[in-house]
């Protein structure tokens, strides 16, 4: 029996029943931009940068199941503009200063921005005030860079069974909180060995005293960007 297939920008992609469009594309080595998706966790569908046209209708490819005969478009000028705008929105919503960020060169947001040729934030900056939490002996939380993808929430809950993180507020005031009456990370059960320590796509959950270890040119995404990783074209592969 032949496997079911859909076309992605004209290329036939075969998939297994139950796979989402982005999963099937990734397996086939085709990159669809993403931020909040993570292969080890169920789809979240909040960043919306993986939006594609499915039979002409805009849908998030991380939450839409692949179906036989679907016609999917991803690499269109209009979708690229939408994705650029979404990345720009994430930039202006927080405080992102890449030159001074420990995550620079390993950051999914930064890499996606470059991949989409985003050259400016476009919109006016919010410049929110978001104090960092340095209470934990080994971990720093810099909320200025949070894109609210909930990966840490999900990792801490589903894998670590600790529920260190949750979201509060709504709208533009939506923000990450930690599981302590004091509001301080030091008073939660967070440990550096937690899964939640390693899932943040941006520079929020950081090891203290470990920043800027790799020189420019040798950082993870300098070696292999998220796109190269999917396409199998990284310098290492």
């Amino acid at each position: 029996m032949t496997r079911p297939t859909f076309t992605l920008d004209g290329v036939a992609i075969s998939f297994d029943e139950g796979q989402t469009i982005i999963e099937a594309a990734r397996k086939a080595g085709v990159f669809i931009p993403f931020l909040c998706a993570h292969p080890e966790f169920p789809a979240h569908g909040s960043c919306r940068v993986c939006t594609v046209l499915v039979n002409g209708r805009a849908m998030a490819s991380c939450t839409t199941k692949a179906a036989d005969g679907q016609v999917v478009e991803s690499n269109t000028a209009a979708l690229t503009r939408d994705r650029q705008a979404l990345v720009q929105m994430l930039f202006v919503e927080g405080n992102h200063f890449c030159p001074g960020c420990e995550k620079s060169g390993a950051c999914t947001l930064q890499s996606l921005g470059k991949d989409l040729a985003v050259t400016s934030a476009g919109f006016a900056h919010e410049s929110p005030t978001r104090p960092v939490d340095a209470s934990h002996p080994d971990i720093l939380l810099d909320f200025n860079r949070c894109i609210l993808c909930e990966l840490c929430v999900r990792a801490s809950s589903d894998v670590d069974k600790k529920d260190v993180f949750a979201l509060s507020g709504r709208g533009l005031d939506k923000h990450l909180i930690v599981n302590a009456e004091s509001g301080r990370l030091a008073d939660t059960g967070m440990a550096t060995t937690d899964k939640a320590m390693s899932v943040c796509p941006v520079g929020v959950i950081l090891w203290k005293r470990r920043g800027f270890a790799d020189p420019i040119g040798k950082r993870p995404h300098d070696v292999e960007s998220p796109r190269q990783r999917v396409e199998g074209k990284g310098k290492t592969s």
Binding site: N95, F97, P131
Partner: peptide, 18 residues
């Protein structure tokens, strides 16, 4: 033309914005 991080998003000087 806006040139560089500071012209584009405030850059290092904008660290005082908080």
């Amino acid at each position: 033309v806006a040139v560089g991080a500071c012209a584009i998003n405030g850059g290092l000087p904008a660290q005082r914005n908080q």
